[in-house]
Design a protein around this nucleic acid. Structure first.
Lengths: 293, 293
DNA sequence: TCCATTGTCTGACTTTAGTCAAGCATCGGC
DNA sequence: GCCGATGCTTGACTAAAGTCAGACAATGGA
């Protein structure tokens, strides 16, 4: 790892925790412990399961429970039974909670404005651009790709989202029933693999590997959630599957894709896949790729 | 102020305090309260006055005193009477303190590496570049330019540094005695102005304005500390002086510069100064500029 | 020389943040 | 319908962070 990059990051971390961090703690207090203020932000417009809050903020369940009770006592949030599972609690902001959140937003704006006011227009633009880049890359770096059963809840949700996206984008629509090239158990260990990409606990992408011969495999169902595009999720999924394929002793990887999926096309080229002749009868495929491992 | 820029900064602040901030608190603990760890960083190689620590970290004096005592009890720092003023205390790291600091540095490196490891080489480069840009601009934004007596301690130090830099850079050296174009009282209110730029309390630049006629003035002694170059300090000094000149009812601003100072040349052009004929007999001047306000 | 100010230290607090274990209801699979 | 796992709550703690007021010595200007 490049020494000068490490140094840059260290300097950045220190500056940012001291300057931005310290400012945020002051701006976001409003006579309330910081942990509570952060909770108000994390709840957002639609409400969240307590369980999600816990994993996102990395808090102890007891501690979080108390924080939630305290906000409830202040009349800022409501607690309700969460959807299907009777054990879960769902929190949402009350009218007063929403107003409180707006007050924090105004403070945040003031903080942001105070960071900008000494800069001229050109510098402001450069700052915003650079911050956007840092943000995108830090998020990208915290995406975790891990194997998961292809019929787990999140895996199913990813696949469903993928299929409905295909239905919307393909000229003639898409019907899973007509594409039996990769059923769940094709992509389950040990003959296959399914991976899910997660960002802050939320599933934001997936991909599968299916063994098709002694030394050949096929990549299937590579998908990225719209909210996570441009962060290299698909690339990481692909590389993870490729590494697994090597580990399984495969020598050749293949895949097919539809002409509507231009980003996928570009990704496969960039990752060393070369276009080959049709190797299957998938009715939705227009292009076929191969990579020798 | 551009709404989308504010939004970007807000998003950035939130991400960074949550992600980087949270990571730092874990990495930098080493079985010691965070406040103590931060103190070790802030003390640095040469030692600092307790008073400076207090203003830099914004801590209560009682609290800080205790933190210092605790680090002293651990054998990491030494306390000495500070220079001239018998009330001040100066802290510096002991040998053990320096070793401890190095250990923290290694942890910081590990943290930085953990942020990089999921990225590929191209992304790492982009992240480091963008972080450098953000860092530079945030620092630039926290520079404060304010009027100060031209014979104050910091003003003198700036001017001395400026003169010795001129001596090093001019072909034939530089001798202040031969340049009586701007003595301290020429740049003192109300007929003139002297400003000092500060970053975290340290003086990092200066500049003076001297009235030379009913509606004309001259810009003098614009200097930026080497540690603060590329942050737009000189530009802000210049603009501050220009605004003051307008406030004093001046219609024309002039200045001269030496051919060795190429950056200055570029700055004056960019800020709307136009080259004119020689208007004084300064032996060190090669170019003369003017701007109508 | 006096006196208000400044820099540091000490004692006596409070609040925030966080941990750990036990308890209770609900769920999913058998 | 039983049982281990899961989601949340409660009680009982601890450590860290921070506040406030008072004490004391050194300073600097009247």
């Amino acid at each position: 790892m490049d020494e000068s990059q490490l140094r840059q990051i260290r300097r950045f971390n220190r500056l940012v925790t001291r300057r931005v961090g310290a400012l945020e703690t002051n701006y976001l207090r409003r006579g309330r412990p910081l942990a509570e203020a952060r909770l108000i932000f994390e709840i957002g417009a639609d409400g969240v399961d307590v369980r999600t809050l816990r994993s996102r903020l990395g808090l102890d369940s007891g501690y979080l429970s108390r924080l939630v009770q305290s906000l409830k006592a202040q009349g800022l949030i409501e607690l309700a039974k969460g959807g299907g599972d009777g054990r879960r609690r769902r929190v949402s902001l009350t009218r007063r909670g929403i107003a409180e959140r707006a007050a924090y937003d105004r403070l945040s704006d003031r903080l942001a404005a105070s960071m900008l006011e000494a800069l001229d227009e050109a510098e402001r633009g450069r700052l915003a651009t650079a911050m956007g880049e840092v943000e995108r890359l830090i998020r990208a770096a915290s995406v975790e790709v891990a194997a998961e059963a292809p019929n787990s809840g999140d895996a199913r949700r990813c696949l469903d989202a993928y299929f409905s996206e295909l239905a919307a984008r393909f000229e003639g629509g898409f019907d899973v029933a007509k594409d039996d090239s990769a059923r769940a158990d094709d992509m389950a260990a040990p003959s296959g693999l399914f991976v899910v990409a997660r960002l802050d606990g939320d599933a934001v992408g997936c991909g599968g590997l299916k063994r098709t011969g002694k030394a050949t495999g096929e990549i299937k169902r590579v998908w990225t959630a719209p909210s996570a595009r441009g962060m290299g999720v698909a690339r990481r999924v692909l590389r993870t599957l490729e590494a697994a394929a090597r580990g399984m002793g495969l020598r050749t990887l293949r895949l097919d894709t539809n002409r509507a999926l231009t980003e996928a096309h570009a990704l496969y080229n960039k990752e060393g896949f070369r276009q080959i002749a049709r190797f299957n009868d998938n009715p939705y495929a227009d292009h076929w790729f191969e990579k020798r491992l």
